Simulated scan of single mutants.
Amino acid sequence: MTTLALFAGFYAVIAGMNGDFIAGAIAIFVAMVFDGLDGRIARMTNSSSAFGAEYDSLADMVSFGLAPALLIYQWMLSDFGKLGWLIAFVFTAGAALRLARFNTQVGVADKRYFQGLPSPAAAAVLAGLVWMVEVNQIETGFEASFALFVTLATGLLMVSNVRYSSFKELNLKDKVPFVTLLLIVLVVVVVTLKPSVILFAAAFLYALSGVVMTVFRLRQTQEQRKKAKASSVSTETEPTDNSNS
């Protein structure tokens, strides 16, 4: 499964070099599918190993670090010259640093959250953008500038301290309720209607969710500090009873 994910990422690079941007974008999503399967299959077959974990990280670097950056550079960022490939490099470097940090935090970090935007999600944003614009033939004149901004933003989010939900608290090992199965079918149906638009929107909203939650938590922390400070001040200024009994 890991080798198939690596092959899909490599194919995305070749497709981008040949100008077949839709195939390259789809290949990155295919790599995400295989990347999600390899770990689960390893745990189901009790074949997890340190070698497999390192191999998976190297494959992720190609499929979700190098391939999306080269694809979007060939697609739009090449119009910006040196700035374009520098921004693409920021994305690639962000993915490498994100994967290195993830490997050093295994077993230590809270499994409910990811620190920084996961590299597959960042790759999905870029691949989804390319796929959506190409399939729907969107021509607004702002595609290149938006691609430049999104590439830089996702690259920086990968190395940020913004927390993202890992959805690992969802327990799919027990019996799955019928309503859950129905929702899964509905999601698949909705995605098949406009896969490029839906997948890009889902990846973009996930990338945005971490920023929104971080801002919300910061505001909550500031309000709690203000309340604590106000209560401490009121306690200090409270008049003492000096009357004699």
Rank of each mutant, 00 (worst) to 15 (best):
N171Y: 03
N171H: 06
N171P: 00
L172P: 00
K173L: 10
K173F: 07
K173Q: 13
D174F: 03
D174M: 06
K175I: 12
V176F: 02
V176I: 15
P177N: 04
P177Q: 04
F178L: 14
F178S: 05
F178N: 06
F178P: 00
V179A: 14
V179R: 13
V179F: 14
V179N: 04
V179E: 08
T180A: 14
L182R: 05
L182K: 06
L182W: 12
L183C: 08
L183N: 01
L183G: 00
V185N: 02
V185Y: 11
V185C: 06
L186C: 08
L186F: 12
L186K: 03
V187N: 02
V187W: 08
V188K: 02
V188W: 07
V188A: 14
V188H: 02
V189P: 00
V189M: 08
V190I: 15
V190F: 12
V191T: 10
T192K: 04
L193T: 11
K194I: 11
K194N: 13
K194S: 10
P195C: 07
S196Q: 15
S196A: 15
S196M: 10
V197Y: 13
V197H: 09
I198F: 15
I198G: 00
I198A: 10
L199P: 01
L199F: 04
F200I: 03
A201S: 14
A201R: 06
A203F: 06
F204G: 01
L205V: 14
L205D: 04
Y206E: 06
A207D: 07
A207R: 05
A207K: 01
L208P: 00
L208E: 07
L208M: 13
L208D: 05
L208Q: 04
S209R: 03
S209D: 05
S209F: 06
S209Y: 06
G210P: 00
G210T: 03
V211Q: 07
V211I: 15
V212G: 02
V212R: 10
M213G: 01
T214K: 01
T214M: 08
T214N: 12
T214W: 12
V215P: 00
F216N: 07
F216Q: 10
R217M: 09
R217A: 11
L218F: 05
L218K: 11
Q220P: 00
Q220K: 13
T221N: 09
T221D: 15
